[in-house]
Design a protein around this nucleic acid. Structure first.
Lengths: 343, 343
DNA sequence: TTTAGCACTCTATGGGTGAGAGTGCTAAAA
DNA sequence: TTTTAGCACTCTCACCCATAGAGTGCTAAA
């Protein structure tokens, strides 16, 4: 992997930027004219040929301009982009929106998805944060009718699960309150296994409820794992590469098919909160994603609860905006999650 | 609007069925050969010409076969389809799945979407049920750290809302329990306006919480209104009419853009629980939906809580399957919702 | 090392052609 | 009056060809 000269780096950067803007192959003339290079088209052509030899650029056919290869994009993202940040006014607006919504848990994910989609100009994906260790915080049994009871379980971190249960015989709300209180005293802060070990200390009705609660905690992960908030898919589908042809398939699949998304996340997402990974054109082993790139991040509080967020777009996406948007929104979400946890 | 002869109806029905299967224009020969009609192609051609004159069929060009018009599909759905039902074994399987999930509120919507998509062979949309009249059922204040408190509000019908609040000074969990109890006694079964009228009866801390609760109840509608579960979009996008060209736009927009879906639902969805409406090719006033049809239903318990569900597909969808699937799933969901409500 | 000049290659476009599909019409048959 | 066979007609589709234009690669000179 030879070093590139300064001029080669400049030209590679310009080809990427121009192609991202125009969606068409970039010619030597276009580069010289649009960016006022101080050299002739022939010189640029020589450099383009060299960059192609090195694998950063390619040709659709002999007499077309150059387009970046995956490797070209990768080099652009890792070496040429530098540290990018959203403009201050955008950061302010976004931070303000998150501040407004800070109290309303239900709003966080849709807000994050919407902000990401608009800021990064791509389709946004945000998963619900998953607690690394789920533990009991509070339980309430609420009688609804006859023998039907609504069980509301609050886990540490504010996750709330609900389930109906059907009792063998009617129980008054007062009795339900007492049972709830007893369970709350015994189980506060415990994980599923610890609850299991204390079940024997409980009267039979409470023990039944506790068993159910254990189940709910154990399955809570699986249920929420898949909940993904999305935004902006239809805008991205209007990009020329998707407007016709079957490239749109991969884009729609990653946004709509939970299992596909999970596979890609498992493969490409970093375990570290705050880090951002870029997956370009499927990186050779996701055929459906040849025309797409993903910018993926993880947010939350390590060892407590983390979630994933990302932007999907055509391979010629605005990487600078996407990366800085993912990083910035990830930070805001992490702050919100952090505030929810007792230190 | 002239009456059609029996033979014309038969032929119209066959054209629709054949076109739905083949996705191509249907020729007179194809009809005679595939369906063993006892007449010649010339006779069929005469009838086809007549059906075209009456507006049920059209031609893409002179020497192509016929395809149904919106009117043709409409007639097919309303007059020719008759009462359709899913085969018994499918109904059994589906009912069984819903029975398994009956206790787990969070599973209802994704299950319904997944079943609908697979059964109707289209993209499924299911909205969360919205209570017609939201009323207070239970509240719990849970201290998390220092001055942060998690407020969990249960509404009648099992809807659970949560919100963080930041107190001016720390309050112990015991005091929070007492406040919760007082509010629960006073507010059980009340709607937002009734709570407002009783706020003066409460001590200041509880009154503040009650004001917040009122807000939450009033905004609960707006928040959940938009929550839509989806499934099967990527399968539908593989249909030939969407695989290239810009028809896919309308399909993706209705599935992904909340506001667009809401506009269409407001326009086309019947207010009656259990009824099913069919919107064919946008019916002339939704341009984006020219290539799509929707089969929409409403489920729930009238005057308590209802939601919408539907199937979106190409205009040449399997209307029989879609209608019966929507009707059947709607019934199952309605039963679940009914069970949640006190009579 | 850079550049001007030029030959070369490939695409995109438009016209032209022939095969094939399917219709509409007409006139005869039932 | 309805049905049908036969046939002319129309339109698409696939293919080929020629041409214009874009853009490159190469060579030789600056």
């Amino acid at each position: 992997m030879d070093e590139l000269t300064r001029r080669q780096r400049t030209i590679l950067g310009l080809v990427v930027r121009e192609h991202v803007k125009s969606a068409a192959p970039v010619s030597s003339r276009a580069l010289v004219e649009s960016y006022g290079l101080e050299v002739s088209t022939a010189t640029v052509r020589n450099e383009l040929a060299r960059l192609e030899e090195l694998g950063y650029l390619t040709h659709p056919h002999t007499s077309a301009g150059r387009i970046p290869t995956r490797r070209g994009y990768r080099h652009f993202v890792e070496r040429l982009l530098g540290e990018v940040e959203l403009p201050l006014h955008e950061r302010r607006t976004i931070a303000h929106q998150f501040h407004q919504a800070r109290r309303e848990f239900d709003q966080w994910m849709p807000l994050a998805a919407s902000v990401l989609a608009r800021t990064a100009r791509g389709a946004a994906l945000v998963t619900v944060p998953q607690a690394t260790q789920l533990c009991y915080k509070h339980l309430q049994l609420i009688s609804t009718q006859g023998r039907m009871v609504l069980l509301v379980l609050v886990l540490r971190g504010g996750m709330v699960k609900q389930q109906m249960l059907n009792l063998a015989e009617p129980v008054s709300q007062e009795a339900l309150n007492e049972a709830s209180d007893r369970l709350n005293q015994l189980c506060n802060g415990l994980v599923a296994d610890e609850i299991e070990s204390r079940i024997s200390e409980l009267p039979s009705f409470e023990a039944d409820v506790a068993r159910l609660v254990m189940d709910m905690i154990r399955r809570a992960d699986a249920h929420t794992a898949g909940v993904v908030y999305r935004d902006g898919l239809s805008e991205v589908l209007q990009q020329p590469e998707f407007s016709e042809g079957e490239w749109a398939q991969g884009l729609v699949r990653i946004v709509e098919e939970r299992s596909f998304l999970e596979a890609v996340l498992a493969d490409a997402l970093s375990p570290d909160v705050g880090s951002v990974r870029v997956l370009i054109g499927g990186e050779g082993h996701w055929d459906e994603l040849q025309a797409c790139s993903l910018v993926l991040g993880r947010y939350g509080v390590a060892d407590f609860a983390t979630g994933a967020l990302g932007v999907v777009g055509p391979i010629r996406m605005f990487y600078g905006r996407a990366i800085s948007a993912v990083r910035f929104v990830s930070g805001l979400l992490s702050d919100l999650v952090y505030d929810m946890y007792a230190e």
